Computed example of a mutant assay.
Amino acid sequence: MTAPRGSTAAAAPHPATCSPPKFGPWPTSPLPSVTFYNQEDTVTNQLRNGVRGLMLDMYDFENDIWLCHSFQGQCYNFTAFEPAINTLKEVEEFLTENPLEIVTIIIEEYVRAPKGLTKLFTDAGLVKFWYPISEIPMNGMDWPSVTDMVAKNHRLLVFTSDASKEANEGIVYQRRYMAENENVSS
């Protein structure tokens, strides 16, 4: 717990959502599905089982922000999973019930609604856990220890794939602060 957070690695399933798409062939829709769910466990069960990184694909869809696993920056009926707030409320519940845990969310983002993510995370009750962008270590400096993060209740790290959200919404642009390896073999 005293090692800097930046010296740790975490598995992060992509996408972390497990439920079948809302509008797919499950169970009665006549629409074909071009997306598949990758996880057998719910987000809550993934967190209970030790996952601490969640990769979530977020899109504007049906006048809300949805989790989709889609293509070309567009969510479709046949690629939509559920409103993102549902999953974020699971994260909020987990962090509330587990005051020593830290969760990282990495958003592949296609949200264009102004301040859409800010509103989403506020509505989900996650702002109280948010690691502030003003405290992000710069120029190779160490992250605080897990103990320090827990003491300050800065237990939610949120990164986005959209660089503009760093200045506009205070959400950290992932490419500045992390490395990603998608080619892990067993």
Rank of each mutant, 00 (worst) to 15 (best):
L117M: 13
A113Q: 15
A124N: 03
K119M: 01
E135M: 07
S134N: 10
V127G: 01
R155Y: 13
W143K: 05
V150R: 12
V127Q: 09
K119T: 13
Y110H: 15
P114F: 09
S134L: 08
D123T: 00
Y131C: 00
I107S: 11
D148P: 05
D148Y: 07
W130K: 01
P144N: 12
F129H: 06
M138N: 12
N153V: 09
P137F: 10
T118H: 04
F121I: 12
R112D: 05
P132V: 01
I105N: 03
L120K: 03
N139L: 12
L126E: 00
H154M: 08
K119D: 04
L126R: 03
T122H: 10
A124L: 03
E109Y: 07
V111S: 04
M149A: 14
K119E: 08
G125F: 01
I107F: 15
V127M: 10
L117D: 00
S134V: 11
G125C: 02
H154W: 15
G116A: 07
K152N: 15
F121L: 11
R155F: 12
M149K: 10
N139F: 12
V127S: 06
K115H: 14
G125D: 01
N153I: 10
P114K: 05
G125I: 05
T122A: 11
N153K: 15
A113E: 13
K128W: 02
Y131Q: 03
T104W: 12
K119Y: 05
M141Y: 10
W143M: 11
V127P: 00
L117G: 03
P137R: 09
W143R: 04
I106M: 13
T122L: 06
L126Q: 04
E108Y: 08
F129V: 02
V127H: 00
K119H: 06
